[in-house]
Write a protein that binds this DNA or RNA. Structure first.
Lengths: 228, 228
DNA sequence: CGATGGTATGACAGAATTGTGACAGTAGTA
DNA sequence: TACTACTGTCACAATTCTGTCATACCATCG
């Protein structure tokens, strides 16, 4: 859920302000101070969103935006342009150069975050909202519901994701660290044993429906969801 | 998804060009050649968007925009202003008068359509006038009235729209930010927690009719309207 | 059999999320 | 103008969820 946001801004004060707001909202900010610097970061890892000041030393933000749109890899990364309020023409140029949205300085942190959220949401690839059926269970991410032959099972967020992962990857054994990567995210630091506890909670929730054999322990390797 | 666009433009050639582009994109164009004529159309049926030339015979486009913003019914209809490229000041005036966006002549069809789509996307979706029935409730947008098996429930505007959205999209979980987009419109910047408060107000209004289970909290995800 | 390494379980404190009441600002109205 | 209705925001309370630990349990192997 957390997104990497590349902030291209040469003025340190504004850079800091942007970074602060972004991290405050749970996103990760990557700082760049000019176009070249931005490309370095981009080549290293593609960000999910680029926040771009129109005023940059050397080549302008508009030019960077054009280059981003011209490059195959970066073509689809959404861009939000930062423009000064006075020069209305910037807005036009910003939009024509392929920016997805723009925001005028001075901006309120709230507006900034609202725009970031809106753009990310618009671009976000539809989560696999399709209903999954396996092992007598029916799990619907869109409705956030699990149906065990007529009865609704209630799960916490983590157990829900865990079960969703298992149902979409049945019959295969996953180690604890693989499960942490897939279900928790590959950047979190939690004990591997934590997986055991959540497996238990999941089993407990499934037990009333005599579905306890679904999640099997593979000693020394990890766990497996088996539909048979 | 098709929208009605009122095109207020006195020059026949440009009028025709605009209409052509608009219909080409699947929208419906309604033609008006001056302010009075525009009001006639507006009184007949509210358009989804108004494309307004700054240069109009008699009263200017800016004045019309002001009148549109002053009127309760037309206040929330988005306006795109058409201005000549030369006069930068018009742009400012156009925006200050309440236009949502502006576009300079000569314009490219692509830019025109991009702006129209952007503005339409941002507006709060307006509800259809059809009566909706779900979960023991009957909601009639036209009469702004809710019927709970015989009794009439009174709701504020926001709660009304919220309930209407839920009733037309039952069983599915919506995040706070999705609800803000759908019910408030994605151009407004309000805290996500505001949704919670309105959910509470809605629940409170529904409670006397023992309809409290209708709106469910899905921890970590959002809310759901469930008819079952 | 006992030792050993891996797994299950129950408890728990702190973190995270949501519910709730109050409040001030705004807009509309008489 | 005063009055009413409505909104968005906040602070705090209530609730749920999470990660971690200590301990009990179990399979395997010497």
């Amino acid at each position: 859920m957390t997104a990497n946001i590349l902030v291209v801004e040469d003025e340190p004060a504004i850079q800091e302000l942007l970074t602060f707001n972004i991290t405050q909202c749970g996103y990760r900010a990557i700082e760049a101070y000019d176009a070249d610097n931005a490309w370095t970061h981009i080549n290293h890892a593609l960000p999910d969103l680029i926040l771009l000041d129109w005023m940059l030393p050397g080549s302008s933000g508009v030019e960077l935006a054009r280059r981003l749109r011209a490059d195959q890899r970066t073509r689809n990364i959404p861009i939000i342009m930062l423009t000064a309020r006075t020069d209305e023409r910037d807005k036009i140029m910003g939009l024509e150069s392929g920016a997805d949205d723009y925001i005028t300085k001075p901006f309120s942190p709230r507006e900034l975050m609202a725009r970031i959220r809106a753009v990310l949401r618009r671009r976000a690839p539809q989560m696999s909202d399709e209903t999954v059926a396996a092992g007598g269970l029916e799990l619907s991410p869109a409705m956030h519901r699990i149906n065990a032959n007529g009865t609704i099972i209630d799960l916490g967020p983590t157990e829900f994701r865990l079960l969703h992962f298992f149902m979409t990857h049945p019959e295969r054994v996953y180690s604890r660290s693989q499960l942490l990567d897939q279900v928790w995210g590959d950047h979190v630091f939690v004990e591997e044993r934590t997986v055991d506890v959540h497996i238990r909670r999941l089993r407990q929730a499934l037990e009333p429906f005599s579905l306890d054999g679904l999640i099997q322990t593979v000693r020394g390797s990890g766990y497996r969801f088996s539909c048979t």
